[in-house]
Amino acid sequence: MQLAAASGLMSLFLFIVAVGVLALLAGGFYMTSRVRYRESPRPRPEEQPTMPPGGPVHEVRESNREASEVPRTAKGERPLTPYELTNMDTRPGTTESKDRPRWSNGSSGSFGGGGLGAH
């Protein structure tokens, strides 16, 4: 019965916990304001980036790129590991057409889209 009875000590403990939580929240707001004060100011409108004199920059069309050949190992040598195949460069494709392959008409081009894909 005594444990279930209201205690002034329990009320005091809950009040101290509530004050502690409020102090943590106030400290968080204070720390946030200090960090914002140290940040550099936002750029003014005249400091914003401007468009280049030649107008907007457009995409450069290049022929499709082809991967370099994978180096071959001589018979009897150990195979190359993936770590030895880093920095595999690409080169411009040999095809003269600069058109990218497109999906056929009427096809979504997605896997399982029902179309035949690029042909």
Rank of each mutant, 00 (worst) to 15 (best):
S68Q: 08
S97P: 04
R65S: 10
F111E: 12
D89R: 14
A74F: 05
T90G: 02
T94C: 01
P82Q: 07
E84L: 02
L116T: 14
T95P: 00
G93I: 02
G109W: 05
S63N: 07
D99K: 12
V60A: 12
E96L: 11
D89F: 05
G106S: 07
P82Y: 06
S104D: 13
S104V: 12
S110F: 15
T73V: 13
E96V: 10
L80E: 00
L116C: 07
P92I: 03
E69D: 13
T81N: 07
T94E: 12
S97C: 09
P101N: 04
L85G: 02
D89W: 05
L80D: 01
E77Y: 01
K98R: 14
G112A: 10
A67V: 08
P92C: 01
R61F: 06
E77S: 13
L85Y: 00
G115A: 07
T94S: 14
S110Y: 13
G109Y: 07
E77A: 13
S110A: 15
R72N: 04
D99I: 06
R91A: 10
D89G: 09
G115V: 04
G115C: 07
E84H: 03
T86K: 12
E59G: 05
S107G: 12
R91V: 10
L116V: 14
N64H: 01
G109H: 06
R78K: 11
P79V: 03
S107D: 15
K98P: 00
T86E: 05
S68Y: 02
S68T: 05
A74G: 12
N64K: 07
G93M: 05
E77D: 14
V70C: 00
L85T: 03
R102Q: 13
G93Q: 05
W103A: 02
W103T: 08
S107P: 03
M88T: 10
E66L: 00
S107A: 15
T90V: 14
R102S: 10
E77N: 10
S63W: 00
T86H: 03
G106D: 07
S97A: 14
R72I: 08
T73A: 11
F111H: 09
D99A: 14
R61K: 11
P71W: 05
S97E: 07
S97T: 15
E96W: 03
A74P: 01
W103P: 01
E62S: 11
S107I: 00
G112N: 14
R65A: 13
Y83N: 09
G115H: 04
R91D: 02
W103E: 03
P79M: 02
S110V: 15
R91Y: 14
D99Q: 09
E66K: 00
G113Q: 15
G112L: 09
L80F: 07
Y83W: 11
T94L: 11
A67D: 02
R91K: 14
S68R: 05
R61G: 04
R78T: 05
G112P: 05
R78D: 06
E62M: 13
V70F: 03
E66H: 00
R78P: 06
T86A: 06
A74R: 14
